[in-house]
Amino acid sequence: MSRIGKKPVAVPNGVTANIDNGVLSVKGPKGTLTLGLSDLVTYSVDDGAIAVQPIGQSKQSRSHWGLQRTLVSNLIEGVTNGFTKILDIKGVGYRAASQGKTLKLQLGYSHDVDIAVPEGIEVKTPDNTTVEISGIDKQKVGQLAAEIRRWRKPEPYKGKGIAYRGEYIFRKEGKKK
């Protein structure tokens, strides 16, 4: 039994959820999100909650059960509060600047790295070593943060690179004489 899947997802006030033609659409104060529904689980929108149940007892339907419940929960969380990832840039000469729908990074390469910001995502740079990525879709926010981080992953000797806020970088000792 899925511990996560058993819990219904609460729908707060100001949020509406509808199931139509195999698509769950959730509308809230921050916007609208949709999710294509899986054939292996059933969804029911009751007053104030969305319940997800597996159709059979097959391994595949039971494994989709918890996943689909979490995806529904992410939709509700996204349209009410939204999601934010914060990246910290460490290193001499490493900096970031947000220019409209483009993020310009200087990461020690001979050229600047320009990253196009997808629709529905907002990127802010409160200072030149911090990047805040926010939006209502958790997958898009996390994907953009991972693509930015991939340009300079934190290295273990000096800790230089792009790291998530709160991420622990395992540090190694340097060479000895």
Results as ranks from 00 to 15, higher is better:
2 S>V: 15
93 G>Q: 10
86 I>T: 15
78 G>R: 05
4 I>C: 13
123 V>R: 02
143 Q>P: 01
54 P>I: 08
108 G>F: 13
61 S>Y: 10
71 L>V: 01
98 S>D: 02
78 G>F: 02
57 Q>A: 03
72 V>Y: 01
172 K>M: 13
135 G>Q: 04
171 R>D: 00
97 A>F: 10
78 G>A: 01
43 Y>E: 00
113 V>K: 07
96 A>R: 07
97 A>N: 05
23 V>M: 09
58 S>T: 11
52 V>G: 07
76 I>V: 14
133 I>A: 09
167 E>A: 14
48 G>R: 05
136 I>G: 06
38 S>R: 13
19 I>T: 01
127 D>P: 00
116 A>S: 15
3 R>Q: 14
1 M>W: 15
121 I>C: 10
31 G>D: 04
51 A>R: 14
156 P>G: 12
139 Q>N: 12
31 G>S: 02
131 V>Q: 05
126 P>H: 07
113 V>N: 10
136 I>D: 03
124 K>I: 01
11 V>T: 06
80 T>E: 06
13 N>L: 03
70 T>K: 15
72 V>I: 06
108 G>E: 13
94 Y>I: 00
157 Y>T: 12
62 R>P: 03
121 I>E: 10
86 I>Y: 09
168 Y>I: 12
87 L>W: 04
157 Y>M: 13
46 D>I: 03
148 I>T: 06
145 A>Q: 11
38 S>K: 11
175 K>R: 14
110 S>F: 13
107 L>C: 06
170 F>D: 14
32 T>H: 00
84 T>Y: 03
82 G>V: 09
132 E>R: 02
89 I>R: 04
174 G>P: 03
92 V>L: 13
10 A>R: 12
89 I>Q: 00
45 V>K: 12
27 K>S: 02
60 Q>C: 02
102 T>C: 01
174 G>S: 14
144 L>N: 07
67 L>A: 14
48 G>A: 07
71 L>K: 09
79 V>M: 00
103 L>N: 04
26 V>W: 03
148 I>V: 13
24 L>C: 00
146 A>Y: 11
46 D>A: 12
117 V>Y: 05
77 E>C: 01
63 S>K: 15
74 N>Y: 15
141 V>L: 06
65 W>C: 07
104 K>I: 08
103 L>D: 04
161 G>D: 10
159 G>S: 11
49 A>R: 09
47 D>G: 07
8 P>D: 07
